[in-house]
Design a protein around this nucleic acid. Structure first.
Lengths: 342, 342
DNA sequence: CTGAAAGCGCTTACAG
DNA sequence: CTGAAAGCGCTTACAG
């Protein structure tokens, strides 16, 4: 390898608004206005400035803009990077932002509170939190500091931030209805062990209510496991080896459902003839024949799209809270098909 | 919903360096130096300033810092969000940055070139590109503008940026050796259809060379498919339905391998008794019993960790290129175990 | 070791 | 509709 010691990259001598102004023969204020599509510039001036910007290949610096105005950057915070569902959400956010000056940047951290601070330090114009663990009060406090939209958080008590949700209660009901319709009655729910999540509340509530309505109240059984491979396996194994083994397990996410299938296969059980499995998120892995997993589609892309729309509205001045709900949809596959009659 | 029209979030009246200076009874320059751990401040002054910063809960604003110095923000660009392998890389980057002031922000776009510009507009201190499609010349041009490290890009001809790589040629060789050792000889490779990737070159080369060395040169067969579910399925189906069906398929990624297993299952074939399958990345899904996929571990976390280390070194002034290579490791599972003797 | 002053590249009232 | 000037919160020479 040649060891040419070149000087480290320079701060890139970029074109500034001043040079554009000079080239166009106008003031810097005029250029700034064109840049922000602000009110009060003539078409002629705008055209002149645009021409100079193109000619000089001008690009505004976000830090400088951030000093007085906006950075045109939105922060995205996911709880888990391994779940492909979040890629759908991100895609939706991006498609909403496509024709705007905004850019979404995603951060990940094991300490979300610190990450929110880091985002604020970097003057994100707005924040989209997916599946936040924070309390409504804590979210309201964040919402008072910058435009905030949550995805997967059902507490709409405050006016300080917007929410976008899948109707989780209905989602759980659809699963129970589907399973009962296919002949399963002893349906266990493998839920998530996590403090204070309104999504968990809603989904468990939907499960309970629908089990009652379907006259399956006697076999209501909720088991909670943390999002950790080992713990999920232990929980599933316990369910599958119990005296009164359930007919079916409704799992928190597709990821957990794949683990459940794995444990069942390891135990020599057949899905769905010995045990039916249903997931949540309808990720692309559900389609693979070795999984063929029935799942609830919560339209991740639509959730992301709406969240981005709402956060931009907030940035533009809306102060009353807005809430958007997406209806869930069950996608039936082999993992829960009716059992072969004996 | 109550429609209390509160004013939109204010720009958050934050504590500035000036107020810290006043509280500590020193100049703003002194505070700035403490902030950057810069040379030339007495312990006494540093302690005073630290105390005031803590007391006032001071946090520096990245935009203001960026105006003159660094933003303490690193850009991460992934080619694909659905592949859980990238979560490992991200985890490695984060763990390298844990005790520093740097924060990694991940962007995703279908137009990587535009995303790089957006990152530069936002004055990222450095960039980590994972699996870039850009040419070495184009990367060198970017490396001249800001500190740059690539992951998964074997062209080390330039001095303008650092590279971190898994030894992909060796990885492919390990797969062929493993399969031949388990009795498979007609081994096809399902590679990626994409213009100009040195990773593809290296992996295909390793496959070819090792097939020759193992006296399997006669059955060398490389099929390329784009990273699209439908195309992968068609390619696999064609392989599995061909007159001279291979014994084994070495797939580009675990994702493609899972699709291959899916097609095999759909065709009523047994893995590995009819067809062995091997993947690449050793993602967590490989462990599930329904996949039980043999795969090459390329230590995503280590790749991310090293990349972060190198980019920070570049930011700190290193100008000679550095290159880091991680040895691959094959993890054998059911999908390629020796066939039952007939 | 410490500090006063200039300036980074924008946006924002404000005056014309 | 247009522009001159102030200022956002830091860092960077430079002087003491």
């Amino acid at each position: 390898m040649a060891k040419t010691v070149s000087s480290p990259p320079k701060p890139a001598e970029r074109i500034t608004i001043r040079e554009v102004a000079q080239d166009a023969g106008v003031s810097v204020a005029a250029v700034s206005k064109v840049l922000r599509d602000a009110y009060g510039v003539s078409d002629a001036l705008r055209a002149k400035v645009r021409a100079s910007m193109d000619k000089l290949n001008y690009r505004p610096r976000a830090s400088a803009r951030g000093m007085r105005g906006k950075t045109y950057t939105l922060g995205l915070i996911f709880p888990d990077l391994r779940n492909p569902f979040f890629a759908d959400v991100y895609a939706g956010v991006n498609s909403a932002l496509e024709r705007t000056q905004y850019q979404a940047m995603q951060g990940f951290s094991t300490t979300p509170a610190a990450l929110i601070e880091a985002m604020i330090d970097r003057q994100m114009d707005g924040l989209i939190l997916i599946g936040p663990n924070e309390s409504a009060a804590s979210l309201a406090a964040t919402g008072a500091r910058l435009p905030l939209v949550t995805i997967g958080q059902h507490d709409k008590s405050g006016d300080g931030y917007d929410t976008v949700n899948n109707d989780d209660q209905l989602g759980a009901r659809l699963v129970v209805r589907h399973l009962v319709g296919n002949g399963f009655r002893n349906i266990a729910m493998l839920s998530l062990m996590q403090p204070a999540s309104t999504v968990i509340e809603q989904r468990e509530l939907g499960y309970r209510l629908e089990m009652m309505e379907q006259k399956c109240g006697g076999t209501i059984n909720i088991v909670r496991a943390p999002q950790v491979v080992r713990d999920v396996q232990v929980a599933v194994r316990r369910l599958l080896e119990s005296k009164e083994r359930p007919d079916a397990i409704f799992c928190w996410t597709d990821l957990m459902a794949f683990e459940a299938i794995s444990v069942a296969v390891d135990l020599g059980l057949s899905v769905p003839d010995d045990i039916a499995i249903v997931g949540y998120d309808n990720t692309m892995f559900c389609d693979f024949a070795q999984n063929s997993l029935t799942s609830v589609d919560q339209s991740g892309e639509l959730l992301g799209l709406q969240a981005a729309r709402l956060v931009v509205e907030r940035i533009d001045g809306r102060s009353a809270a807005d809430h958007f709900t997406v209806p869930p949809r069950i996608v039936a596959r082999n993992s829960s098909r009716p059992r072969k009659p004996i």
